[in-house]
Each structure stands twice: as C-alpha cells, then as structure tokens.
C-alpha cells in the first residue's frame, strides 16, 4: 500500500502541475476560447458534485443513507448562507458525530 501510494502521490501531483505549466506556456488563444473555459467549469463542478454523491451516499459500493445525510443537509443550508468553508466542514462533522452518538 505504502509504495504504490507514494508513486500515486507523486504522479498525481505532477499531473496537476502539468496544467499549471502548460497554461503559462501555451499561446493565450488556445485555452482562452470561451467554449474551452466553459468545459473546464463544467468539469470542475461535475467532479465536485460526483464526489459529494460518492462520499455522502455510498458505502462500500452500496447506496447508503446514514448519519451523513443530515450532515450534508446542514452543509447545504450553511453554504446557502455563505458561511465560511471551515465552519461548514466542522458543522457537518459535528452533526454526523452527534447523530451517531445519540441514535
């Protein structure tokens, strides 16, 4: 697990860096096309929404509703209220921990 993870950490980091260096090298017109930047926005949002789904509603490849559900509802409400990131994360953790402790 350890060695494979180390390789993964380095490869993934280089792959993210490749965007940063590529963007600073490419001529502006290639990446600055509105359609291309729209796809980048879509991709970012889709991956984040997919991660909410997988981390909030799946457990060991099974669709699962548990203490994470009330935690996520709280997170959505706080996100609508524009509460800072760190408070949203703490409130969600506290909600899930509380639900598990009391029920």
């Amino acid at each position: 697990m350890l060695m494979e993870l180390w390789i993964a950490v380095v490869v993934a980091s280089l792959s993210v860096y490749s965007w940063k260096i590529l963007g600073s090298t490419l001529p502006e017109r290639v990446l600055n096309h509105p359609k291309v930047s729209r796809l980048a926005t879509f991709l970012t949002v889709a991956l984040m929404a997919g991660l909410v789904g997988v981390q909030g509603f799946v457990d060991n490849r099974e669709i699962t509703l548990d203490a994470r559900l009330p935690a996520l509802l709280i997170a959505v409400v706080l996100a609508i209220l524009r509460v800072p990131f760190i408070l949203i994360v703490i409130a969600a953790a506290a909600t899930a921990a509380g639900v598990r402790f009391f029920f």
Partner: peptide, 27 residues
C-alpha cells in the same frame, strides 16, 4: 463524523460555483 466532513467539504466547494442553469444541470 470525518466521513461526513469529506462530503461536506465538496458541498462547500461546489455550491458557490452553481451560478447558472446549465451548470446546475451538470451538477
């Protein structure tokens, strides 16, 4: 509650980006 915190982190990251209807459909 760290598992819920992980999912909530993405809620917090994605929410401000849902600025128009096509983006919301994608999400």
């Amino acid at each position: 509650g760290l598992d819920a915190a992980a999912a909530a982190a993405f809620v917090a990251l994605v929410w401000p980006r849902l600025t128009d209807s096509p983006i919301r459909v994608v999400a």
